[in-house]
Design a protein around this nucleic acid. Sequence first.
DNA 1: CTGAAAGCGCTTACAG
DNA 2: CTGAAAGCGCTTACAG
Lengths: 350, 350
Amino acid sequence: MGKPPTMADVARRAGVDTSTVSRALNPRTAWKVRPDTVARVVKASEDLGYRLNVLARGLRTQRSRTVGMVIPDLTNPFFPPVVRGVEAALDEADHTLIVVNTDDDVAREERSLRTLVDRQVDGLLLATTHLGKVHNAQGNDGSGGGAFGDLPVVLVNRRGDGDVPFVTPDDHQGISLVMDHLLGLGHERIGHVAGPRDTSTGRARADAFEEMATAAGVFASGVIEEATAFAVEPGRAACAALLDRVPDLTAICAANDLLAIGCLSVLKERGLRVPEDVSLVGFNDMPLVDFLEPPMTTVRVPQYDMGFRAGQIMLDLLEVDVDSEAEPLTSAELPGTLVTRRSTSSPAAS
Amino acid sequence: MGKPPTMADVARRAGVDTSTVSRALNPRTAWKVRPDTVARVVKASEDLGYRLNVLARGLRTQRSRTVGMVIPDLTNPFFPPVVRGVEAALDEADHTLIVVNTDDDVAREERSLRTLVDRQVDGLLLATTHLGKVHNAQGNDGSGGGAFGDLPVVLVNRRGDGDVPFVTPDDHQGISLVMDHLLGLGHERIGHVAGPRDTSTGRARADAFEEMATAAGVFASGVIEEATAFAVEPGRAACAALLDRVPDLTAICAANDLLAIGCLSVLKERGLRVPEDVSLVGFNDMPLVDFLEPPMTTVRVPQYDMGFRAGQIMLDLLEVDVDSEAEPLTSAELPGTLVTRRSTSSPAAS
DNA sequence: CTGAAAGCGCTTACAG
DNA sequence: CTGAAAGCGCTTACAG
């Protein structure tokens, strides 16, 4: 019962001043205190079940040891593993992550950001996909002083305009995996259901597709159809448009699994068999795509690693000395791997 | 540039004391201040872009206006909508939610709880499925004083032992929807792939199944097989065992969609067609189950509403006066709806 | 209606 | 190595 014990309670019990308790209990300053005093303080602290009030500490030190992360849609299974990666990285430096959801809504995004800043987060991890907002985050000139009060920012799953650090999948490498696979299978009429051009990922994948298809001599105009969003329904619409325009495709490379699922559903509706008539490839390897009919070939992205890396970069920006061997904590594009399942085959199989 | 403005800055600019600024800016005390003074303070505050430091306020008021929520597995698509519901409810009372993930791991769970308590959360929302932990949360006697320092607790998606408030799906009603559907279709040999008995949800659904099957005169021993966890692989194992034991089943009611997906995969492996040979029903209506082959019949649970309700109960416990019309903010079991898709049909169809 | 004072629970120069 | 003092940014009785 009663209120939880404070440092003053510990000090009283150990017969020392609160300043000594503070020093004794903090790993970074404990060496300043005589060992037997430390022992006495630790004992008193444990006897009382004392717990440091991190908010009070934050008020004093001007560091909350908290990082905010804004996610466009927690419901999208892509993000949870990323979040866990971030948490794992921050954990090592005793930092806490506060995640907020924006539902891909600009108004909610502003409010979420306000909330985080008001909570005195030390830094911001941005995973919102829509471009052109980072300027606001860091001030629209090079001088710093943006809307977020000069908070360190790292971008996750998207790139920014300037020198804002980011961690993304290696879209170029991922698409090259897909194209090598499809080309190797003998496909020559390949379509691309692209993500929105106003997302860095949608753009990068479409560019990579065009580049590789051109290099292989299989690019044709009209073979790319841009979906309005990374979701099933837009995937259906884009796939339908694509098929109407280029009916003789033998393979479709979708910019992500949700789009691929949309494609799958219209292909089935039109009586086209996958993979016998049309091969289909997704991107992300989200949960359950291996239980679709047919199980989907896709590119697995190291989501957890992306999060972990982003977390590390943030800690680096925060100048927290986590005792890791000075790795290259810079922006990164992490490579994926191709997971071959039954949605792809040689066009000869038809 | 420079540090963000404080209340002292606003006070200086408005020519008043910080205490007046505090009163003027707080909706609950603004009436104590002369209107034109309020206006002057607000003006100064806006000119400066002043933002209240909520941590400092929390230190002073002993309330962080923060609630912690522990989730067993954020990767499980069941939870994100629940989380959003909670956020929506808390938002109305200007509270922030901090979500932590435990990976269903007891050690991580303890650490997460510590983190939340250390962050001075005002209350705890527990969505971990394993039973028998709430006592620790509230003290193992009726006197309060548990490991979490008497924090208000509300259970989400699980029930507790004592009088701890909870919000769950109405499992009995949900299963009755399923059984009415199956029975109405003419099935008489129905199996149940149950969730773990040590989860309140697994138990409630199995009990409901047995009760209704018995009432309909179609219950037989061996017709229930308990999976070791709510996941695909355990679902496969349980379904295989069930089919080995009772080969002539015409329908399977699974305790959730993941288990149903496991069932689907072994049924296919064994050359049994769904629904021609065996009808299959899931629970939860998680994303993508409508894209399985065949699309799965399942029970849709109002996840968002569950979260919202849980959030409301918490606010109530916190005695925050959110201006809602005194609804019945007690524990609730929210009813689901049956979503009929192609995984179920009359057994006569075979 | 407003100000001066005290204090929430810490940390950190500054003396000793 | 340790203590006394000040202060982080707020709120709230207590006087006036």
